[in-house]
Design a protein around this nucleic acid. Structure first.
Length: 605
DNA sequence: GCTAAAAATGTTTTT
DNA sequence: CATTTTTAGC
């Protein structure tokens, strides 16, 4: 940040500075801080690598044959396509069971992000599918073909295509480089090989580039992040000075002692020892709870106590590994009437009702979007998978609404087709603002939702919130692209969280989504062996790599806390590996005197 | 043959 | 808990 200020003060126009990072929350945080320092007069550009790629490709993609109106696929779109491909490949598998479509997607995606052949990924991480490598390669080829025929672009393609654009079109590369002369990348340990290449390409000859990262906080290896990028950057830009930041301005020493203790268990290369001038502070707590309910009760009662001591709810966070770890707590909070926002985990854009409505809008933008068409068709009564396929084939190349009316069908299917045709012809994307269009679609689908979903009131509320969030868009296409790349990420008890930053709400968040943020008080749920580190079963010990990643995950969680930290471990949990009944091995490895060891049961009673 | 309802299954984490 | 596969039903 200081470099940013210095650059601007030394006369560099703010708009020639580009800030990039991997996660949206880190990007938001980064841009907000920059705006805070520089004032609003000169907005700095920046965002995630993906959103930057989206903008650049819309603008210059023509140079590599990509039309500006390309459609972005989200993860579940990709799953759906691969599901079809998987079904087609079943015969070729000759009786062998193919992995789930999500697994195939993960293999293909890793191969792209790490820029290594599928064969390597499978032999390293999925050796049980070694026999199927050639099938995966066929699947990859079909998946690529499917996308390129339709000008569909998935998350990985955004990066691949940006690299190709910058490499194959020197004119475009020169233009982009001249408009962003100074490049800064935050959370560099989370970038993958493609993003590192983009960084190098954008830096170009001028080499005006700075990256910030902490290898101890690398927690995205599962999607191909490569924290060695940090060291590689150091080698590539030899003249770049390395500044190690060891003084910590956030946490009290008691918390840093735990953080240092965790870090000393890592096999990391850039060793640090964190210290602070903030003083010792209270000891972090290591709290034993009987089960998840007791864990929830302890956390809730502590939150109430802290609020009584003057700590606002918004200054308190509860962190966990997976979204479901917070379920019990959510019930408890609802019971006590404590408001909260929950980040991470469940994704709205992938929940059925939102996809239902957006599929209709996608058809308005691109009538040939057969992924969206399938969804629009099959969500109606009377039309199933094979019916949809027949209708899709019939409709190919025909005007959509007319075709729907002319298709020969009877009974429920006929009624459904008429309803779709009526709804689609009623929506007028050219005359209405995108948000209004969305609103009409919601209204038109409401009767169907009421029969289809038991919890339709909640879903309708979600959609109404979504309409509100979309008010700022001027084109349907950019609205859809943004919703895919930057979906609303938080929820409240009753659904989608709208913009209400004023409210004093407790924060529940996955550790992954908490990166870069800080709170006065932090609770970590399920700091339990089997969860952190995650262990699938008794006889299945995790390998060193994933063990290390989990250690870093706990490190990230611990270092979010400024003054107060409680690590809670339930002895019994409802699912998953039973019978561990131990705190995380990473915590057991630390000297006991670093913690106040408590029992939640004594506490709550 | 195709759909719709019931059982089974398999779980991070993000763009 | 929500999605996918299996099974029954039309």
């Amino acid at each position: 940040m200081h470099r940013l200020v210095r650059l601007v003060e030394s006369g560099v126009p703010a708009e020639s500075i580009l800030l990039l990072t991997f996660t949206r929350r880190a990007a938001e945080e980064m841009i907000e801080r920059a705006a805070g320092i520089l004032g609003r007069r000169e907005p700095v550009s920046g965002g995630t690598f993906h959103s930057f790629a989206n903008l650049a490709l819309r603008k210059y993609g023509k140079a590599i044959g990509l039309p500006p109106g390309f459609t972005i696929l989200d993860q579940s779109d990709g799953f759906e396509i691969l599901g079809e491909i998987r079904a087609d490949l079943k015969d070729a598998a000759e009786g062998a069971t193919l992995p789930r479509r999500e697994t195939i997607a993960s293999i293909l995606s890793k191969s792209v992000n790490k820029q290594v052949p599928i064969e390597d990924i499978v032999s390293e991480e999925f050796s049980q599918f070694f026999e199927l490598i050639s099938l995966f390669e066929i699947a990859a080829a079909r998946y690529r073909a499917y996308k390129s025929e339709r000008h569909f672009v998935d998350f990985d393609d955004l990066l691949v295509l940006l690299v190709r654009l910058l490499e194959e079109s020197p004119e475009v590369a020169a233009r982009v480089r001249s408009s962003y002369r100074y490049l800064m990348v935050d959370e560099y340990q989370d970038t993958n090989l493609l993003q590192a290449r983009i960084t190098h390409l954008l830096a170009g000859e001028s080499r005006n580039v700075m990256v910030v990262g902490d290898d101890a906080q690398s927690i995205y290896a599962f999607r191909g992040a490569c924290h060695e990028n940090l060291f590689d950057f150091h080698r590539r830009f030899e003249e770049a000075p390395v500044v190690t930041l060891e003084e910590n301005y956030r946490s009290t020493q008691g918390i840093l002692d735990v953080a240092n203790g965790l870090m000393s268990q890592m096999a990391a290369a850039f060793r640090k020892s964190l210290f602070t001038a903030r003083g010792k502070g209270g000891k972090p707590r290591l709290v034993e709870a009987a089960d998840e309910a007791a864990q929830a009760q302890y956390v809730a009662s502590e939150v109430v106590r802290l609020r009584g001591e003057g700590v606002p709810l918004a200054e308190v966070a509860v962190l966990f590994r997976a979204s479901r770890h917070a379920f019990a707590l959510e019930i408890e909070l609802a019971h006590l009437g404590i408001p909260y926002v929950k980040y991470g985990g469940f994704r709205f854009m992938e929940s059925a009702h939102i996809k239902d409505v957006l599929a209709h809008l996608r058809l308005l933008v691109l009538p040939g979007d057969d992924l969206a068409l399938s969804r629009v068709l099959t969500m109606r009564p009377g039309i199933g998978k094979s019916g949809a396929r027949a209708i899709r084939e019939f409709l190919a190349g025909k005007p959509l609404v007319e075709g729907l009316e002319r298709y020969r069908a009877k009974g429920k299917a006929r009624a459904s087709l008429d309803e779709i045709a009526a709804l689609l012809s009623h929506l007028e994307p050219h005359r209405e603002a995108p948000a209004l269009c969305l609103e009409s679609a919601v209204l038109g689908l409401k009767p169907l939702f009421q029969t289809r979903y038991d919890d339709w009131p909640r879903r309708i509320r979600d959609l109404e919130t979504l309409v509100g969030l979309c008010a700022r868009y001027r084109s349907l296409n950019s609205m859809l692209a943004d919703l895919t790349l930057e979906p609303p990420s938080a929820s409240r008890r009753d659904g989608l969280a709208g913009p209400s930053r004023i409210a004093d709400e407790l924060v529940l968040s996955t550790v992954h989504s908490s990166k870069g943020l800080e709170w006065r008080a932090v609770f970590v749920l399920q700091a339990r062996d089997g969860t952190i580190p995650m262990v699938a079963s008794f006889d299945d010990e995790p390998d060193q790599g994933s063990l290390d990643e989990d250690l870093r995950l706990l490190y990230v969680a611990v270092t979010r806390a400024k003054d107060y930290l409680s690590l809670v471990w339930p002895r019994e949990i409802a699912r998953g590996p039973y019978g561990w009944g131990m705190p995380s091995r990473f915590l057991l490895a630390l000297p006991e005197e670093l913690f106040d060891c408590l029992r939640a049961d004594d506490f709550v009673a």
